[in-house]
Simulated scan of single mutants.
Amino acid sequence: MKKITLATWLLLLSPAVLWAEGEENETSPDAPAGAPSVIQSDVPRVMPTPQETRIAGLVNRLSENHAHEIETLTAEGEEFLGLFRESESGDPQGCVVILHGDHGHPDWPQVVSPLREKLTQHSWCTLAIEIPDIRNRATPVQIQVEPTQDTQNDNTPELPNEATVFARIDAAVALTQDKGYSQVVYLGYRTGAAYALRYTAEKGTTNQALILIEPRTSLPVSEYDLAQNIERLRLPVLDYYFNRNTLVERFANYRQAAANKRTNRSVNYTQIDALPDARYDPAGNKRLVQRVWGFLKQNTNQQSQRKELPEFEKELFYKSPID
């Protein structure tokens, strides 16, 4: 085999090298001398809109058989979706406003859909509302350090989209009142629970109830900061979580400690580690509904559900004895 000399290699490679250099130095006619090449395209970029896509798909799915549930609400000049279901009894107790988790929707199959459907069988109406997605989810994780007593203050940072979500809750409550329901329960799932907790704490809500299911927070609000809102609550609370790991347990401990510091002990705070119920199947959903309904039955103003039997003319059922 003949040896290939260095000069031969240079001759073989030179066309490719010259072609590559020519392409790198190629610029558009209008570009200034020495400017790097820029590939231009007239095709507009399409930004993904995952929430709009999810909501449009949900509306399309429900429109065929459940169009009567679809409500269009407005807050801050922006329309958003609500799914309303009437109580299936003649003596409704009130309405449950349901907040889904981040990147979900008002008929999310885990937790949200079973509760919004089944609670109506237990004398409650339900209104599940659309919550905006939390942007910039790639924010670096910050190590949470429990502050000392001296460093604690009341300047707790807000959750992302907090003002928007609060305005939507206000609009949801107004809708339930327009439909004749005077008693409202706030129920949140995951980040929806964080919004519900912050809302009721900030508003000083009383004479109603709050249900937190698998609560999760979002930066810049740490788990410790979010838990401190429980100390300010003035209404009964069901804290329903799934103790899957030490981080979840620590967050639950923060919430229980804050509840223990409340000065108003006349309202109930119930924390349940419901890990066995964390099965998204009919059995798990049934137990979840039963526990939520049981809590509401014991911790809300219950209207009388026992109706007096109507009076009938006795002659309809028996005849008087013959004289």
Rank of each mutant, 00 (worst) to 15 (best):
D225K: 15
G82I: 00
I129M: 03
V165C: 02
V145S: 07
N285Y: 13
E24Y: 05
G294F: 05
P140R: 07
A194S: 08
I70N: 00
F251D: 14
K297Y: 09
N65Q: 09
A67R: 06
I322G: 08
V237D: 01
S218W: 10
G77I: 02
Q93M: 04
A194W: 00
G104W: 03
E79D: 14
E79F: 01
D225N: 13
M1D: 04
T217P: 09
G104Y: 01
D30V: 02
S37L: 05
R198N: 10
E69G: 02
L10H: 13
N299A: 10
N301M: 12
A283H: 11
H105V: 00
Y280V: 08
A259S: 07
D277S: 12
A258G: 09
F312Q: 08
P50T: 08
Q149W: 11
L187P: 06
I131E: 05
I55L: 04
L212Y: 05
F80D: 03
L197I: 11
E71K: 15
H103T: 15
V112M: 08
V111K: 02
T300L: 04
G180Y: 06
A274W: 08
S113C: 04
D102E: 15
T8C: 12
R45I: 13
I4E: 02
E130T: 03
N25W: 10
K179T: 03
T200D: 05
R279A: 13
V97Q: 01
N264L: 07
H68T: 13
L119R: 03
Q290G: 12
N260A: 13
L13S: 13
D239R: 03
H66R: 02
L13F: 12
D225A: 14
K3R: 07
V185D: 04
G101L: 01
P44V: 01
R291S: 12
Q302E: 09
Y186C: 04
N260S: 14
V111C: 01
E76N: 12
D91A: 14
D281R: 01
I98S: 04
F317Q: 12
F251M: 14
Q271D: 10
N243K: 06
T246M: 09
N207G: 10
Y254K: 10
V145H: 09
D30N: 07
M1R: 10
R45P: 02
A7K: 09
T206G: 07
D42N: 11
S89Y: 00
S87P: 05
T191I: 01
Q208T: 11
K203Q: 11
D30I: 05
D107A: 13
L83R: 02
G77M: 00
D170E: 07
W293A: 15
Q149F: 12
P220V: 06
Q51M: 05
Y269S: 10
V237P: 05
A227W: 04
V185G: 02
N245M: 02
R61H: 14
T300I: 01
G284V: 04
L235C: 00
A16R: 02
I230L: 11
N268L: 14
P132F: 05
Q256A: 15
G204C: 03
S304I: 07
P310R: 13
L10C: 11
E315F: 06
